[in-house]
Design a protein around this nucleic acid. Structure first.
Lengths: 197, 197
DNA sequence: TGTAGAAGCGGACCCCGGGTCCGCATTCTA
DNA sequence: TAGAATGCGGACCCGGGGTCCGCTTCTACA
């Protein structure tokens, strides 16, 4: 299989771009005052290199996002309860949403950049599809719930990046408050730990 | 009060731009392949006129959106039940969400353009604030519900333009199906017509 | 180690869309 | 009807994403 090994400088440059972009997005005010030229400059690299490595802006952002997301996916796929598999939905659904919320809080600009990346709706991203499928599957096991596909969409919509950003940034809702509010809402929806009167 | 009357040609042109933009957005594939130059051309007007009348692209979109939304606001503020005032929250909340869903279905591109308009998050729009306040107020009267502010955000997130667009466009969910799914979800959340066991 | 040629580099360049500007036309006021 | 004020419009600017191609650097093979 003639998949030739990548050249050393190529991997080095790719890594440099990756690191530069990561810090730039972390430190910026808003994701779209981080320009491709900025990234190239910060990485000490030409624009051509950058586009060769990642295709386009969206590709770069996806790559960064995926890298940051990896630990979460790991934890969901093979981690311990309550996130990992083998946990009953009543605990796992809130745990998943909480994890996503925390992730977006920790990676605000990146998530914002991804979800708002031009015309590409967030709903075409591969990882969205995965969360949605997982969530829907879990919801299906729950009694008294409506169409689980739509419900999964609705729950995921509650942790969308720009909403999270708005709450954290504009309304200055502290992290823990937000987490508990989300937990309460989730509980109200899937109807678990509200003690039955 | 020296607010001089606007010139005849000015109002005429403003109207022309308005109409042209409206049809363009309605007929387009995606809101961002309708360009400001296109609108000006379609209205038979120079770009300068267009920008003078509406400030910038976002302003124009807001104006269009507001015009389309007006009937809905009317119905909510002073219409008959279940949308109008004086309806108990248990019916009015679902009615409001349903109305919003229908609105977004009927004005997909416009809503998409508004919510995705560049850096401006949907959460800064004036009308969002109004829906949120109204919804929160209604939710406050309901028993067993968590923080109504967050809950209101979450419910509104379920009818966001790009989600609606995705469901209607990509997944080809028919209008009535979507409405009933939303209704079911709302019911599950505010906990109304699930008959108590 | 030398060398051929592929793989990659980089920044000048292009394109396109939002937004501005200013000389000219139109409309209001006296 | 003269003059001022207001508005018109399209040439123009700017900035960012994306491309291109002559040159450099690495690798494979001897």
């Amino acid at each position: 299989m003639p998949e030739r090994r990548a050249r050393k400088d190529a991997v080095r440059n790719r890594a440099a771009v990756f690191a530069a972009a990561d810090t730039l997005f972390t430190d910026c005010e808003s994701p779209d005052d981080v320009t491709m030229a900025d990234i190239a400059a910060a990485a000490g690299v030409g624009k051509g290199t950058l586009f060769r490595a990642f295709g386009d802006r969206a590709g770069l952002i996806r790559a960064l996002y995926a890298a940051r997301l990896e630990p979460v996916e790991e934890a969901v796929e093979a981690g311990p309860p309550p996130l990992g598999p083998g946990t009953p939905p009543l605990q796992r659904v809130p745990a998943l949403l909480d994890a996503l919320l925390c992730f977006k809080l920790d990676n605000r600009h990146l998530a914002l950049a991804l979800e708002g990346s031009g015309s590409g709706s967030p709903y075409r991203a591969a990882h969205y599809e995965r969360w949605h499928t997982l969530l829907r599957t879990m919801l299906e096991g729950l009694p008294g719930l409506p169409d689980s596909g739509f419900a999964a969409h609705a729950l995921l919509a509650a942790v969308r990046a720009d909403l999270v950003e708005h709450l954290a940034g504009e309304e200055r809702v502290p992290r823990e408050v937000m987490r508990s509010q989300l937990a309460d809402c989730t509980a109200a929806f899937i109807g678990s730990p509200r003690d039955p009167e």
